[in-house]
Design a protein around this nucleic acid. Structure first.
Lengths: 124, 124
DNA sequence: CAGTATCCCTGGTGATACTG
DNA sequence: CAGTATCACCAGGGATACTG
């Protein structure tokens, strides 16, 4: 890798949580990783699965994921160009994390609108 | 809650992942939640456990977590003021997620420096 | 003790257009 | 097809000082 990208973490307990978060955070990374769990995909294929992402952002996020060793970028020297993205072993090892995130989301965010909390107890 | 805070999610598969990430992302939220797993804590107590966080940011993050129904803010009308933060049921239900994040982090980020990937296979 | 109030700055993200 | 290049915006976050 070129630069660490991840500035500095004040390593308390909980540091590992933050560190992991940094890797999968970033507006599209979660979705990208999640889709790649299904298998290898090409740039525009991923793009089509994520409405709203611009090529610039998609490239950006993919490169960061690659830098972090989570995905593999396979370039085939063909014409027309073909580039395939897939999870590395390390990326695939995130599956339980992603699954935990997804299932919590499913259970707790009715859909995504965030209808948050059942009222809290009174006390004082 | 006042405003949804969470603009809009393009709900594909993977949406739930993103949605959950939005709740626990935010530079200090992971650490905060993690510390609160230990039990109730006061403002300055939390602050002391997180070197580098400013009061402004701590307040900010705590308020967002509260808005999202993950933590409970107990204000005691005393002097000197006392405010205690604790996880709600919903917040506590994040424990497995946080644990997944933490254990992945422990296993995969040697410490936090991010010494990423064992070299990939060659192919083309 | 538990915050607010201000100022400021960076960088993450969007829009659009162009290319090997 | 798979990106780059450029411009621009503004929300997130840091520093510092003040308050009920």
């Amino acid at each position: 890798m070129a630069k660490p990208r991840h500035s500095r973490l004040d390593c308390n307990p909980g540091c590992a949580v933050e560190a992991t978060l940094r890797l999968i955070d970033g507006k599209w990374k979660g979705v990208i990783l999640f889709h790649l769990l299904d298998g290898t995909a090409r740039f525009n294929a991923i793009r089509r699965r994520i409405p709203g992402v611009t090529p610039r952002m998609l490239t950006n996020q993919l490169r960061e994921l690659e830098q972090d060793g989570l995905i593999l970028r396979q370039v085939y020297a063909e014409v027309p160009p073909r580039v395939e993205y897939s999870l590395t072993e390390r990326g695939r090892s995130l599956a339980p994390v992603l699954e935990a995130l997804r299932s919590w989301g499913d259970a707790n965010l009715a859909l995504f609108g965030a209808a948050p909390p059942p009222p809290a107890v009174a006390a004082a």
